[in-house]
Computed example of a mutant assay.
Amino acid sequence: MPEQSFAAVTVPSAGDAALSAEDAKLVTLARSSRARAGAAEGAAVRDQDGRTYAAASVALPSLTVTALQLAVAQAAASGATKIEAAAVVTEGSALDGAGHAAVRDLAADAAIHVAGPSGTLLGTVVA
Rank of each mutant, 00 (worst) to 15 (best):
E3S: 12
E3I: 12
Q4E: 12
Q4W: 00
Q4A: 14
S5C: 02
S5G: 06
S5R: 10
F6D: 00
F6P: 00
A7C: 07
V9R: 13
V11I: 05
V11M: 02
P12H: 03
P12A: 04
S13H: 13
A14G: 15
A14V: 04
G15N: 10
D16F: 02
D16I: 00
D16M: 03
A17T: 13
A17F: 01
A17L: 13
A17M: 11
L19I: 07
L19T: 10
S20E: 08
S20Q: 09
A21S: 14
E22Q: 15
E22S: 15
E22T: 14
D23W: 00
D23K: 03
A24K: 10
A24C: 04
K25L: 15
L26N: 07
V27P: 14
V27C: 13
T28C: 02
T28Y: 04
A30D: 11
A30H: 08
R31A: 12
R31S: 13
S32P: 07
S33F: 00
S33L: 00
R34A: 04
R34Y: 03
A35T: 06
R36V: 03
A37G: 01
A37D: 11
G38D: 01
A39N: 05
A39I: 02
A40F: 03
E41W: 06
G42V: 08
G42W: 04
G42Y: 04
A43G: 09
A43I: 03
V45D: 03
R46Q: 14
D47V: 05
D47Q: 11
Q48E: 15
Q48P: 10
